[in-house]
Amino acid sequence: MEDRAFSYLQPSENPYQPSPSNSYSSQMKSGIVIRELLAKSPRCSICTGVVPRQAISIDHNERRQDGGAASVDNAQLTHPYCNTGFKEARISKTRKTRATTGTLF
C-alpha cells in the first residue's frame, strides 16, 4: 500500500533537467539557487560544514595558548560549537594520547 500522506514532498520534476519550454520552472529556479549558494557558502575550517551567517565564529589557526597571534593570517571561520566544544575535546584527546605514548609533539 502506498503512503500518500507525504506525497506532496516528492518533486514532480528533476530541478536540473532542461524544461520543454523556454522558461525556467519554479523548481528549476530553486535548484539553481541552492546549487549556486551552496557552492559559494563559507565552510567551517574544522568540520568543513556550511557556516550560516547567523552562526559564524572566528577561531585562531594556531591557538592563543600556543602563541597564536590575533591576526588575519591566523584566523579561520568555524561553527561556534566546533570552535569551543568539539575542538577542545579533540585537543584533550590528543594530549591524553601523547601522555600515554610519551610523545611530546
Rank of each mutant, 00 (worst) to 15 (best):
residue 1 M to G: 11
residue 1 M to K: 13
residue 2 E to A: 12
residue 3 D to I: 11
residue 3 D to L: 11
residue 5 A to D: 14
residue 5 A to C: 15
residue 7 S to T: 11
residue 7 S to D: 06
residue 7 S to I: 12
residue 7 S to F: 12
residue 8 Y to K: 15
residue 8 Y to M: 13
residue 8 Y to S: 15
residue 9 L to S: 12
residue 9 L to T: 15
residue 9 L to H: 09
residue 11 P to N: 00
residue 11 P to L: 03
residue 12 S to F: 05
residue 13 E to T: 02
residue 15 P to A: 03
residue 16 Y to S: 03
residue 18 P to M: 15
residue 19 S to P: 03
residue 19 S to E: 08
residue 19 S to F: 10
residue 20 P to Q: 08
residue 20 P to G: 07
residue 22 N to V: 08
residue 23 S to K: 14
residue 25 S to V: 00
residue 25 S to E: 03
residue 26 S to F: 02
residue 28 M to Q: 15
residue 29 K to V: 13
residue 29 K to W: 02
residue 30 S to M: 14
residue 30 S to I: 09
residue 30 S to Q: 15
residue 31 G to N: 02
residue 31 G to Q: 01
residue 32 I to R: 08
residue 33 V to I: 13
residue 34 I to N: 10
residue 34 I to P: 00
residue 34 I to M: 10
residue 35 R to V: 08
residue 36 E to W: 03
residue 36 E to K: 04
residue 36 E to D: 06
residue 36 E to P: 00
residue 37 L to H: 07
residue 37 L to E: 12
residue 37 L to S: 14
residue 37 L to V: 12
residue 38 L to G: 02
residue 38 L to Q: 11
residue 41 S to R: 09
residue 41 S to H: 09
residue 43 R to L: 08
residue 43 R to M: 05
residue 44 C to Q: 00
residue 45 S to H: 11
residue 47 C to R: 04
residue 47 C to M: 11
residue 47 C to P: 06
residue 47 C to V: 02
residue 48 T to F: 04
residue 48 T to V: 10
residue 49 G to H: 07
residue 49 G to E: 03
residue 50 V to I: 05
residue 51 V to F: 03
residue 52 P to G: 08
residue 52 P to M: 04
residue 52 P to W: 00
residue 53 R to Q: 02
residue 53 R to W: 01
residue 54 Q to G: 01
residue 55 A to D: 07
residue 56 I to F: 07
residue 56 I to W: 02
residue 56 I to P: 04
residue 57 S to C: 13
residue 57 S to K: 04
residue 59 D to V: 05
residue 59 D to Q: 05
residue 59 D to F: 01
residue 60 H to P: 04
residue 61 N to T: 06
residue 61 N to R: 05
residue 61 N to E: 06
residue 62 E to V: 09
residue 63 R to W: 13
residue 64 R to L: 08
residue 64 R to I: 05
residue 64 R to W: 11
residue 64 R to K: 13
residue 65 Q to A: 14
residue 67 G to H: 09
residue 68 G to V: 02
residue 69 A to F: 08
residue 70 A to W: 09
residue 70 A to V: 14
residue 71 S to N: 11
residue 71 S to Y: 09
residue 72 V to P: 06
residue 74 N to E: 06
residue 74 N to G: 05
residue 76 Q to K: 08
residue 77 L to P: 12
residue 77 L to F: 15
residue 77 L to N: 09
residue 78 T to S: 14
residue 78 T to Y: 10
residue 79 H to F: 08
residue 80 P to C: 00
residue 80 P to I: 00
residue 80 P to F: 00
residue 81 Y to W: 07
residue 82 C to I: 05
residue 84 T to H: 13
residue 85 G to Q: 07
residue 86 F to P: 01
residue 88 E to N: 15
residue 89 A to K: 01
residue 89 A to W: 05
residue 89 A to H: 08
residue 90 R to C: 13
residue 90 R to E: 03
residue 90 R to Y: 02
residue 92 S to N: 01
residue 93 K to A: 12
residue 93 K to M: 03
residue 95 R to P: 08
residue 95 R to D: 14
residue 96 K to T: 13
residue 97 T to K: 14
residue 98 R to S: 08
residue 98 R to W: 14
residue 100 T to L: 10
residue 100 T to K: 12
residue 100 T to E: 09
residue 102 G to L: 05
residue 102 G to K: 04
residue 102 G to R: 00
residue 104 L to T: 15
residue 105 F to A: 07
residue 105 F to R: 14
